Amino acid sequence: MQSETTTVNCPQCQKEVIWDELSAWRPFCSKRCQMIDLGEWAAEEKSIPGQPTHFDHEAWSEKDPE
C-alpha cells in the first residue's frame, strides 16, 4: 500500500515542500525562509486582523502612574 505524499508551498518563496517529519522547517523550505518570515512579523510588517487590545490604545504607557 502506497501512502500519499502531502506537499505545501513555502509561504515565503513558494517552493514546494514535502509535509512530513523529515522536513525540519515545514511549512518553510529552509531556515532562511523561516527567518525572513519571523523578521517580517517582528517588524510588524505582518499581522493578524482583529479588534485592538488595550496595548494598541494610544494612552497606554509602560510607565508607572504618578
Rank of each mutant, 00 (worst) to 15 (best):
D56Q: 11
H54N: 05
E62S: 04
D37T: 04
D37M: 10
Q2G: 14
I18P: 01
K31T: 01
C29E: 00
S3N: 14
I36W: 05
T5C: 06
M35E: 15
W25S: 12
W19Y: 12
V8R: 06
T6C: 05
D64Y: 01
A43S: 14
P27M: 02
V8S: 08
S3T: 14
R32A: 15
V8G: 05
E45I: 12
S23L: 05
Q12I: 09
R26D: 00
N9Q: 15
T7W: 02
S61Q: 03
S61N: 05
F28C: 09
K31F: 07
T7S: 10
G39A: 13
K46P: 09
A24Y: 07
P11D: 09
W19E: 10
K15T: 14
I48Y: 10
I48T: 13
E62F: 00
Q2W: 04
C29W: 03
A42C: 11
K31W: 07
D37Q: 08
G50P: 05
I36E: 10
K63S: 05
H54L: 04
V17S: 02
E66N: 08
Q51I: 08
D64P: 08
S47I: 04
P65K: 02
D56K: 08
C13L: 02
M1H: 12
V8Q: 07
F28D: 09
S30K: 03
E4Q: 13
E40D: 09
P11C: 14
E21G: 14
E16N: 08
M35Y: 08
I48G: 02
D20R: 01
E44L: 15
F55L: 12
E40Y: 01
R32N: 14
E40C: 12
P27W: 01
R32Q: 15
Q51W: 03
E44A: 14
D64T: 09
D56H: 13
H57N: 08
L38D: 06
E4S: 13
P27E: 00
D20V: 06
D64R: 06
N9M: 07
A43L: 11
S30I: 03
A24W: 05
W60F: 10
E62K: 02
I18C: 06
W19K: 04
L22Q: 11
T53S: 13
I48P: 01
A59P: 00
W41G: 05
S3M: 10
C13M: 08
Q34P: 13
E4P: 04
E66F: 08
T5D: 12
E16W: 00
M1E: 12
D20L: 09
M1I: 13
T53N: 04
Q51M: 08
E40M: 13
T5E: 13
V17Q: 02
K46I: 01
W60Y: 08
P11R: 07
R32D: 15
T6W: 01
E4M: 13
T6R: 11
